[in-house]
Design a protein around this nucleic acid. Sequence first.
RNA 1: GCCCGAUUAGCUCAGCGGUAGAGCGCCUGCCUUACAAGCAGGAUGUCGCUGGUUCGAAACCGGCAUCGGGCACCA
Length: 1008
Amino acid sequence: MPEAASSASFSTDSSAATSSEAAATPEAALPKTYDPAGTEARWQQAWESSGAFHPDPAAPGEPFSVVIPPPNVTGSLHMGHAFNTALIDTIVRFQRLQGKNVLCLPGTDHASIAVQTILEKQIKAEGSSKEDLGRDAFFERAWAWKAQSGGTIVGQLRRLGYSVDWKRERFTLDPGLNKSVVEAFLRLHEQGLIYRGEYLVNWCPASGSAVSDLEVEMKEVEGSLWHLRYPLTPLEGEASAAGAAPASDHPIDHLVVATTRPETMLGDTGVAVNPSDPRYAHLVGRSITLPLVGRQIPIVADEHVDPAFGTGCVKVTPAHDPNDFAIGQRHGLPQITVMAKDGTMNEAAGRFAGLDRFEARKAVVAAMETEGLLVKTEPHRHSVPFSDRGKVPVEPLLSTQWFVRTEPLAERCRTALDSPAGPEPRFVPERWSKVYRDWLTDIRDWCISRQLWWGHRIPAWFLVSETGGVITEATPYVVARDEAEAWVKARAQFGGGAQLEQDPDVLDTWFSSGLWPFSTLGWPGEGGQEPADLATWYPTSVLVTGFDIIFFWVARMTMLAGAFLQEADPAPGALSQECPVGGRDSWMPFRDVYIHGLVRDENNRKMSKSAGNGIDPLLLIERYGADALRFALVREVAGAGQDIRLDYDRKSDTSATVEASRNFANKLWNATRFALMNLGGETPASLGEPIAADLVREGRPLQLADRWILARLARVNRETAERYGSYGLGEAAKGLYEFAWNEVCDWYVELIKRRLQVPADLEGEARAAALADQRTARQVLAKVLSELLVMLHPLMPHLTEELWHGLAEAAGASAAVGASGLPTVFLALQPWPAVDEAALDGGLEESFAALIEAIRVVRNLRAVAGLKPAQPAPVQFISGREPLAALLRQATPEITALTRAASVSVLSPEEAEAARAATGPQRALAGVSGELQVLLPIEGLVDLDALRGRLEKDIAKAEKEIQGLAGRLANPNFAGKAPPEVVAECKANLAEAEAQAALARGRLAELG
RNA sequence: GCCCGAUUAGCUCAGCGGUAGAGCGCCUGCCUUACAAGCAGGAUGUCGCUGGUUCGAAACCGGCAUCGGGCACCA
């Protein structure tokens, strides 16, 4: 237990001695600066050991659920994860304060191809291979890796203060999720949505596996375009090229094709031209003798060919190019594979067999040149598909794989997006729904099998006895939950004597990730019972993730949910373990999808491992605290979905942005420290709510500043709840920052200091009155502060939890503690405070702003005149506006304290004129704010030049304004067409600016 | 090629029809007993360019430029 650190914290343990001491002599017990390390660890432990975030599906409260995007177990977390975590945790903590039954479910992803790549690299470095190890030993090693990396990740998530339910933590490859995966595969297969077949797939020679279209990235490379001469095969009876060729005066005896991949010509099975191309129309149907190979291949007409590009002739290699594959299909051309799966040429490549594909390219070009068939070579910049993981060009190869038929699933999703009740899911920001929809339109089937080991084994068993003991495209198979069921199915279909072998391949990682929102909640359940978690928390409330995985993950989840979670799940009768899904509004796995941006580095580059510019979140947490990092990340969010930039100095490992948030944490710490020193050992509970009417009755009414801050508090409460609830997290953070610092600390606390300290020499009734008023101030301060802490809790959970307990237990009252000695009552589980509607007072907020401005003018005058801060000076306000004048009179004691005033007087213009008539003009520091004149009538000790400068500046500013306003009013169109209230405001402003200029001129003249 | 962002103070970004804002940084003065991780005061902008709509545009519309991202892709 990290109790040692609690000396730097508000003590919440049962040894109340330190607490009561803290109340009496706070300076002794509380340091001036907040030290997050001990505090954060302690609260994380307390929350978790008390099960604060382990919800009961049967508990009351509207369900609210989030499944976190499971990080890959490929090492440790980066700043993007910290950002995602900060956003999700802010949302779920807010919803918990709203009284909802909140589940936030954590987990990690096995990341099939990424993890296997890492492990194979390690094994290779040891001079071995996964084949040497064998499948079992490899798995053991992979699980050990998972334990280590997963442990690191979970540790990092805990360190951020993530309020997830660790008891429900899942891993995409754990046995429960395997059950979901197998069930999903079975049902899709039964529905005809999974099929197996030989197609052209993206083959990654580096990982030795097929990959999906999404895992292919197009990269621009400098290549060449080789023009090759393909001779026409002479027609029968055509003796030679010089023979009769009635169709043309210029007989054609060859075609020229252009290619970026000459090595594939060995697999050419045709040449295509555009059907409307007059140059070649007469040649369609004739044959070419394929150079180097000698094969006869036909000339076909196909719309795909662009007559304007190159020669208008295209070589067709159906086994090695997606477009050629399609052309081949349309014209019944054979598919000849000339390459093996390791990227070398195979026996079909004849004399080029055994060469690596890039060597073969050179060799083929050389051979063509030798034959005199290379027409020319041009430099050519073009896009080449690269494997995301393997970082090598992928090879389109014919291969037998498993596929998900996506169109029927995508169609459901498109329909849901057009739901009359509003789009499902709802994207925030909305623009991402277009990206999502576009991808779901014209979607291609999803290759889900991977020739890897680390992953969910495909639940298909082959009757290899039917095909000579090996698995081929033609081998019959059964899909089953396990081997026993496979045997039953196999016997039923093929009788006894079968020999079964499970498919050696595994499923694409995203297949299991795609089930995450329901597999983690217990889908499909046992014995036809719907799991309680699924019944309560499905659909989840919101998915929070980056835009980079909308296709990979978001769309896969919605498509797969559409197959399983519909009210009328069309599963055939064979699947009797049907999971009932009654009573749901929607089968969609989430109501909202909140898409956030990426974290960029100080140079505006995306932070990534490969770029080497990542920042370890733990480094910043250690330096500034988890709350500071979280607050900094959320505060950077502008609107929604925009990337954020985190400034960072790599030499010193510091970040000004995070430091600013750390400073804010410290500000809150000190505000609470101030409160503890001034609440006389009382707590918000013992003081009670400051109810205006009661206080009037008790003869200690709310003062002006009290009413003002309570009005502000009510408004900020309302705004903040609205922002948190509508994904305006950055705005919520900024709003609270400004309220806490600029209003509560800078003004309210300063304004009530005088009232909090009752002079010892005060006696009798005056003393009683002062004490009564002190109590009012204490009540308001306690309320404002504790409510502020609740509102800030989603953003800075540890600090606010600590301070809230500090406030609540100020008197040393022992906190509720559990058997472990840790607290059992948490701010995290408190209700959000109700907005005090009666306290809202727009007029007061406005007039108080004028008071603040008046004080600023006084301070500015003092600064300009070079008065020493400690030197008192008389202050005179002249205002013709009664509400403001009254306010100034009322706030005289506060003004005195905040401006070091020797005296404060408030005069009407008439009184001021009369006084001047009586005493003559006096030298004074003068300034204006609106129609308010501020005078500091002091002789001597004043920098007159600076004062003149100040007045001249006032005049210039007023003149500029006058010019603008007068110009506008002079325009007849303005007066005629603008709304009357705008014109009136404009006139009023002009009058005021003119008055200001006149006043300032007058004062300037008086200075002489 | 198509689609989306962005372009405002030195930096990071708000503002989205009525006279330009915040934070950080910068300058000046302060250890004013909650906080120097602080307090007070101050300076700083042809709001990317260009047409248009409007009484009025940083904001709305059209074009252009630059930067960033996504999708597609002609061999």
